[in-house]
Amino acid sequence: MNLLHKLTEKPWLAQPEGAELALAEDTSLRFPARTALKFFIAIVSVLFFLFSITFLSRSQFPNFQALAGEPWLPLSHPSQLWFNSGLLLLASVGLELAKRQAARQRVNGLVLALGFAVICSIGFVIGQYLVWLQLSGMGFTISANPANSYFYLLTAVHALHLLGGLLALARLIYLFGERPNLASLQQNLSLCALYWHYLLLLWLFLFTLLAAPADAYRAIAAFCGL
């Protein structure tokens, strides 16, 4: 509504003297990095949306064999993936805690929570790699079937985004070491926490998609008209 109101302004009409200054908010309240992160999350969402659409479309071609659904298929009981999901959830919780510790100016708690989050994140990436090894060991290699190709592709792209987040977090910690400023750190940690929560949600979506049986794909594809 607010945007609609802005877009219907008539800028050619004269404003009363001094109104311009009232229109602008205080610049010190602006936090451009949050806006940029929201856009970035939108871009990543579009990326995965497009991957998913192609996945659903490809799943309707005859040689596609889902990775779950029958007892002998590897993702019918994906215990390692559940474990990895737990790690990512813990990482997300850890960052949320770190953000709150920074807000309360508790440095010890902050370091503990951050360390926990980083270890869980790295654990998630390693866990995903172990799933890759298990799958390829069982003969489910990347080019053997399109469902496998998508599994490797989507988990790799997701893990790359997490590694990118870890790089950003490392830079944040380095900058904090250079110039300790808890207020600024808390603000930036809130961005990291938001990004981690997003990656968790994204992973849960991918997990659901990749570990679904062929019937589910058929139903979704029919619903989407694919």
Binding site: A24, R30, A36, F39
Partner: peptide, 18 residues
């Protein structure tokens, strides 16, 4: 990301969208 964030967040005082 820079362009959209700058347009949304770094406008001078009085520079409304319209």
């Amino acid at each position: 990301l820079n362009y959209v964030t700058t347009v949304l967040q770094a406008r001078a005082k009085g520079m409304t969208l319209m």
